[in-house]
């Protein structure tokens, strides 16, 4: 699968189906700090991502506010 990481603008290729929770752990992303998006839908930690999926991981933590 192809995983696009934002705002890092980095793309990684991973092989093998896994749960979203495992995907986040593999990429060392803390729970609750990023949205996992497939198409235009958010994925829950318990959902499975497949080899042919295109996934976006969008980090939500910012350094300041308005």
């Amino acid at each position: 699968m192809r995983v696009h990481l934002h705002p890092q603008r980095r793309t990684v290729e991973l092989a093998g189906r896994r749960t979203v929770a495992t995907l986040l752990r593999d990429l060392e992303v803390l729970p609750g700090t990023a949205m996992v998006i497939r198409g235009d839908v958010l994925l829950l930690d318990s959902e499975t991502v497949e080899d042919d999926d295109e996934i976006e991981i969008r980090h939500v933590i910012s350094g300041g506010a308005a």
Binding site: H6, G32, M35, I37, S62, G63
Partner: peptide, 30 residues
Amino acid sequence: GEYETAVYAFMRGIDSVVEECPNAEGATQL
């Protein structure tokens, strides 16, 4: 939480800046 506001913005189709302010890198708040 920040995750909750991000999810709300996503679900409402709000097109916001995804990149971080360049000055925030290494900020103590992070």
